[in-house]
């Protein structure tokens, strides 16, 4: 069945906007339940600690602030994925714009408004291409936007600082527009929720695993100039535990498919963990270079959006292409150009 001038099948409409199938897959169901239980239990512990006087005012306020931020973050990430692909793509668009804004403000690129116009335009068209399921446009947006960034400030006739602003603009677009845009691309496959949940869970847990094993085992620093808090033991611990988690959850996500093979799940886990940690280090390098501690302050207890989502930045393209390599192009069985037709 097709709707009006927009070439959309019922199946596509359900994928984009249908939340009825949100918990059809056991992985999505159990991860959602797990997160909800964690939020309620940790909130209850805090509340009990406050009532019994185990937490002082300052400790409670600090912990409650972090709990509130984690709750909002979990809801903000999970709800769009559950609601449908269109909501996921909309959330990714906002995330891309927010991350670019913080990057531009941290590096001073925001003062070059024409470059920002090119990047924002690129992000908007790229995410429209994802919503439209127009992959050729999506992939062409990388060279086209970089080309626009290189030429947009030329008519101003101010060659001073040209290389810096163009390089920063291209880096900003490729990392926060093009790379994060792949999350939306993954959402263009029919059963996208468990795969997205696996990737997002892997990235989030990778941070926690690395932090906990690092604190527990201590040992030599990984890159003391770049990120003084990270240890080699933490990096290895994150790598091992995240890969184990990916094998376990991935087994249920890819059951009966070519991707279900343990070696492939190990590679997927290693990709998520290593690129997650590298993304973190990339942002640490930027922060150290610029000389700031946090890249923003919009999330109380965490810093800026990028301080929280830095480890996600490099992962989506790798997951998309690795899974596509093994299962065929993600979303290849879905109608294309659902909004523009043709």
């Amino acid at each position: 069945m097709r709707y009006g001038p927009i070439m959309m099948t019922t199946e596509t409409r359900d994928r984009l906007l249908g939340f009825q199938a949100a918990w059809d897959h056991p992985v999505t169901r159990w991860v959602t339940i797990g997160i909800a239980v964690l939020i309620v239990v940790s909130g209850s512990i805090l509340w009990c600690g406050r009532r019994t006087g185990r937490f002082g005012d300052a400790a409670f306020n600090d912990a409650f602030g972090r709990w509130k931020s984690w709750t909002w973050l979990s809801v903000g990430i999970l709800v769009p994925v559950l609601l449908g692909a269109a909501w996921t793509i909309a959330a990714v668009t906002l995330l891309s714009l927010g991350c670019y804004r913080e990057f531009a403000r941290a590096t001073g690129l925001f003062r070059q408004r024409l470059i920002s116009v090119a990047v924002v335009l690129g992000i908007l068209i790229l995410n429209f291409a994802v919503l439209d399921h127009y992959e050729r446009l999506f992939f062409s947006m990388a060279p086209l936007t970089v080309a626009l960034i290189t030429v947009i400030s030329i008519p101003v006739d101010r060659p001073q600082g040209y290389v810096q602003r163009v390089a920063l603009g291209a880096l900003g677009f490729l990392m926060f527009g093009f790379s994060l845009g792949y999350i939306g691309n993954i959402a263009n496959s029919q059963d996208y929720r468990p795969l997205l949940v696996l990737m997002l869970l892997g990235v989030a847990m990778n941070d926690i695993f690395a932090y906990c094993t690092g604190k527990l085992l201590k040992g030599p620093k990984l890159l003391p100039e770049t990120s003084p808090g990270k240890t080699i033991s933490g990096a290895v611990g994150g790598l091992l535990l995240t890969t184990t988690l990916t094998i376990f959850v991935g087994h249920h996500v890819f059951v009966g498919t070519n991707m279900g093979h343990p070696i492939k799940l190990i590679i997927l886990g290693l990709l998520i963990s290593s690129l997650g940690q590298l993304g973190d280090l990339v942002l640490s390098s930027i922060k150290r270079d610029v000389g700031i501690k946090d890249i923003g302050a919009v999330i109380p207890g965490h810093g800026g959006l990028l301080d929280r989502f830095d480890s996600l930045v490099l992962v989506p393209p790798a997951v998309y292409h690795f899974v596509s390599l093994n299962l065929g192009p993600l979303g290849g069985d879905q109608p294309i150009r659902i909004l523009t037709g043709g």
């Binding site: 403000r105 941290a106 590096t107 001073g108 925001f110 001073q160 600082g161 290389v163 810096q164 270079d289 610029v290 000389g291 700031i292 501690k293 946090d294 890249i295 923003g296 302050a297 919009v298 109380p300």
Partner: peptide, 15 residues
């Protein structure tokens, strides 16, 4: 080429 001038936005560490 000019020296790199990575000056962050004023007050970006403030909520």
């Amino acid at each position: 080429m000019e020296d790199w001038d990575l000056k962050p936005a004023a007050g970006m560490d403030l909520p």
